[in-house]
């Protein structure tokens, strides 16, 4: 009797999990369409570094350069440029330094992969430790 009960509970969990997975998959379909908005400007300027006050983002800074940059980005967005186009043109002008997202390139391959590699090594060590036969 108890065994049966346990089994049905397990089944219930599996059912819930399946429903949950289905819902999450459906969730993806609500992707937002990208139209230019105030928030988009903020998103871009939050990921740009100010060259005058070098620890701040363009969004945070009130320097002359930051103010101009905000206007520049607005006008670029009004011209129909995408975020990627704006970022890449600014990187051409000011160097990779200006964007806070280092992106994946030859220079940053190690930056992205090293932590992940360490994670895998850590996992391997733990598995070895637990399944070690004495």
């Amino acid at each position: 009797m108890t065994r049966m009960f346990l089994k049905s509970k397990k089944l219930l969990i599996i059912k819930i999990l399946i429903i949950f997975v289905l819902i999450t998959i459906n969730f993806k379909n609500f992707a937002i369409s990208s139209t230019y908005s105030e928030e988009q400007t903020i998103n871009i300027t939050k990921n740009l570094r100010c060259l005058i006050c070098q620890g701040q983002t363009i969004h945070e800074s009130n320097s002359d350069f930051a103010e101009s940059m905000k206007k520049y980005i607005k006008s670029e967005l009004e011209d129909g440029k995408t975020n990627e186009e704006i970022f890449s043109s600014l990187v051409k002008k000011y160097g990779q330094w200006i964007v806070y997202d280092p992106g994946i390139s030859r220079n940053t391959l190690l930056l992205w992969s090293l932590p992940l590699l360490l994670f895998l090594i850590g996992g391997a060590i733990i598995v070895k430790k637990i399944f070690r036969k004495i």
Binding site: D64, F65, S68, M69, K71, Y72, K93, Y94
Partner: peptide, 13 residues
């Protein structure tokens, strides 16, 4: 006037 032309050149001050 807006400082945006300088940005086209890649200037910042």
């Amino acid at each position: 006037k807006q400082g945006t032309i300088s940005i086209n050149f890649g200037a910042y001050g």
